[in-house]
Amino acid sequence: MDDPNYMNFFVERPASEASVAAACTRACGVPLESDNHAVDDADGYVQITEYMYGFEMGLCIIWSPASPVTRSQEAVARAIARELGQRVLFDIEDPTADSGERWILATPDDTISTVDVVEYDDGVGLSGSD
């Protein structure tokens, strides 16, 4: 589903809620809050989910249609990776792929690459990294 009001990412290691909210705010260019990190006049929200396997933290960034995020999902992923100093996974629709999606890995050194993933019951990880 292509919804212009949210983006999903998986971060390699857990980070503090305050640092995640701040990194996502800078990456998206709109003020964001989270459950325990309130922001006056926030235009969006960061839902943080912890996972048992693979990349240990999921981020769902949701924003108001009145305050659209104009940065691409790739640009936001690169910025989050730099801000948090760790790798970030995200998927995009790709009708040419067997699964209909392509997974992308952003690294803190600003590289982007297509990767294969393993989808666990409780998380997502890189293929061959077990």
Rank of each mutant, 00 (worst) to 15 (best):
P31A: 07
D35Y: 12
C28N: 06
T111Q: 15
P4W: 12
M1S: 11
G85R: 14
A22M: 10
S113I: 06
E33M: 14
E101P: 00
T70M: 11
L126C: 12
G58N: 07
V118A: 10
E83Q: 12
I104L: 08
Y53A: 14
R82D: 10
A97P: 04
G128S: 09
S129K: 10
P14M: 11
R78E: 05
S16N: 13
E17P: 02
D94M: 06
D40K: 14
T111L: 15
D2R: 14
V39R: 09
D41Q: 10
V69F: 03
F90S: 00
V69S: 03
I92Y: 00
D109A: 10
A21L: 10
E93Q: 08
F10H: 10
A38F: 11
D94I: 05
N36D: 14
T70V: 10
V30F: 02
A77R: 01
I61Q: 01
E93P: 01
T107A: 13
V117W: 00
A97D: 12
G58H: 05
S99K: 08
T25K: 05
A18K: 14
A18W: 12
A38W: 11
D41A: 12
P95Q: 11
W103T: 03
Y120K: 08
T111K: 15
E50V: 10
D130K: 08
Y51E: 04
A23L: 08
P68F: 02
L59M: 13
P95S: 13
S113R: 15
A106V: 03
W63K: 03
C60K: 15
G54D: 05
T25E: 09
V30T: 06
A75V: 03
E50I: 08
Y6N: 12
E74H: 07
D40S: 13
R102Y: 04
T96H: 13
N8K: 14
A81V: 05
G100L: 06
P95W: 09
L84Y: 03
G100V: 01
Y6H: 13
P65Y: 09
S64V: 08
V11F: 06
D3S: 13
D2I: 11
L105M: 15
N36V: 03
H37G: 07
I104K: 01
Y53V: 08
A81R: 01
